[in-house]
Design a protein around this nucleic acid. Structure first.
Lengths: 349, 349
DNA sequence: AAGTTAAGAACAAACGTTTGCGCAATTTAA
DNA sequence: TTAAATTGCGCAAACGTTTGTTCTTAACTT
């Protein structure tokens, strides 16, 4: 029922030549195998006429190459990831590869299943933004010699190539700026604990304090997810503390959205009542009720580099000596940070 | 080099049975083909031990079924599409299908190539948010009896199932509201002309005027793309008109972002100087400098319904009598619309 | 005891490619 | 004239599954 398919065989039959010959002509190997000009001509026109197009399943099976890249991402609806995905897909497409996309929903178990699914589908390589809490399933892949590149989140203890922003420096710079604006009680609403972007950003937050010989109040490092909800809840709680922070460092764009919601619910204003810096710049960041000061990542480059690294690995057929690439971030100053001359919100109110 | 693969044959050899038997046991067809319990046991444990997992390429070739759905989208970085993509992928995954994702970059030529690419990869079905300007390549697919569902953009003249928002009603409601707030000169910044969402929204815009016996100034219907740039440029021009509009109807979220940029560059305020309603609600819409009144679409349902429709078609193996599904929108009132008591900006200034 | 049935499993073809090797016919060289 | 080289192309295997059919042995009938 589903369309009478035109195959090498159907072309061969029609022209009374062998499948072999047709294959060779259509693959541009006529010269190497000495196919006559006339036969070439015949085959080429027949192929065009029937609009032949090779079955990639059969091709993949025979060639052990599918020109497909598996791409696992924790949340495609997060604009941070979707803007990266845009470039991953585009770069891959330009180099002749397609993307098998799966969303792990920040769930390691799902991620593990997806990994197997992709191997079964014989992808040529993998780009993964892993959940980042577990590493063993990825280690196993690495041992199977399947080309792989980690994106955004990586594992210091694992010898796999990765591309990510220099989250440490980005956070350091952001929090330094906050401190230099006179803030001493700066809350850090973190994302998924023990993932590299989170840990690097928190480390930057802590080191900025150290540089300025400021002690870190552990009660000000809160939260456990990159999502909006987490930003909302933790901000609510922070604002109720006895000695609330004068500034907020939100570790992701979604967290900052949640924080803004909480802050406005409490009737407070940014930056008058509380200052704020957020990781991830977004197209809308400058249009928020208070244009947000953000740490901007090079989303477009990240995806491109990841694909290049991966395809290099695939096509050179060698295990690249794994290297990690850190891309610089940029602090975009807008209006969400105020110079702090007081000791805290209470002094203001 | 790339991992010694465990196949049906390797299991068969090790146990001195035939490939056939192994296949049957592992596919749960032991009973139908009377394989003894012992043999089953043997095969099952061997498979587990070697962690056998079938080659989906070979399987697909033989079965003519890949459990893969091709998904073509004009811009995955657009949060409107990425939030839909989230649900498309998730629903598909839950029903046992994977997504081959490609971005057409709003380019019909690319879309056409991608279509062929997906057919060659033997996807079981297609979900497409087409560019929407050309229809012939889609018509050809339809004739090949490949299951397909259109998402967001559809073709009234083409007999293909689709899922989309009720863009007409959504626009009608939004513009009605603007008119009822006293606005008489309402600009409409449209998206890609001749795509269904655009045309339906513009039609809503026009009909709202008709209902209120207001004439439509053609000079106020401007623009040609769903992107941010378009919103910016057209707003700039609109504001320079002799008799500028008192309200703006932005046909997409990106357009409204561009409009906001232009408006703030001109030193104007929403809604004091100009009112605004935008299609597409986004998580950040409520946090914009002026919380935006929007027409919200049911992004999560759209994706789910599209997948269900498609998989129904695939698994029932029949050409569904094609039906279009329109999902209701919801007007979310915030602060970007002001009651207009004047005749225009000039009267205000 | 001969014929019938059932159990258990294997054969072989098919899906659509690609490719190492071989073969016949023709041309060139000696 | 004969051997060698070249031209032009096909055979058949392989990739890893699935499945209709057949085969062998053992068990059951009557």
């Amino acid at each position: 029922m589903r369309s009478s398919n035109v195959t090498l065989k159907s072309i061969a039959d029609r022209l009374n030549v062998s499948v072999t010959t047709v294959s060779r002509v259509l693959n541009g190997k006529s010269d190497r195998y000495r196919i006559s000009k006339e036969t070439q001509e015949l085959i080429n026109t027949a192929a065009k006429e029937l609009s032949y197009s090779p079955n990639q399943l059969a091709r993949g099976l025979r060639l052990k190459r599918t020109n497909t890249i598996g791409y696992i991402i924790p949340d495609i609806s997060n604009p941070f990831f979707s803007s990266i995905a845009k470039n991953v897909e585009k770069s891959a497409r330009k180099l002749g590869y397609s993307i098998l996309l799966c969303d792990s929903e920040e769930d390691t178990k799902i991620e593990e299943n997806l990994l197997q699914l992709m191997i079964d589908r014989k992808v040529d390589g993998l780009i993964i933004s892993p959940v980042g809490l577990e590493v063993n399933h990825l280690r196993r892949i690495a041992q199977k010699n399947i080309p792989i590149v980690l994106l955004d989140r990586y594992f210091p203890e694992l010898n796999l190539p990765f591309v990510t922003s220099d989250n440490y420096k980005g956070a350091l710079e952001a929090v330094n700026m906050l401190i230099e604006h006179g803030h001493k009680r700066i809350a850090c609403i973190q994302g998924l604990v023990n993932t590299s972007p989170n840990n690097d950003r928190v480390r930057g937050y802590i080191d900025a304090h150290k540089t300025h010989e400021l002690s870190v109040d552990k009660k000000l490092i809160v939260g456990d997810s990159f999502g909006e909800e987490n930003g909302y809840i933790e901000t609510k709680l922070l604002l109720k503390q006895d000695d609330p922070p004068t500034a907020l460092f939100a570790v992701s764009n979604l967290i900052s959205l949640g924080a803004i919601r909480a802050i406005s619910e409490e009737g407070l204003k940014i930056p008058d009542d509380i200052s704020m810096v957020s990781f991830d710049d977004q197209p809308y960041s400058r249009f928020l009720s208070t244009p947000m000061t953000t740490v901007s990542q090079q989303n477009s480059q990240i995806g491109q580099i990841a694909i290049k690294l991966l395809i290099d690995q695939i096509e050179s057929n060698r295990q690249l000596e794994p290297k990690g690439i850190f891309l610089p971030t940029r602090l975009i100053s807008r209006d969400s940070v105020k110079r702090n001359i007081n000791l805290g919100i209470k002094a203001i109110g």
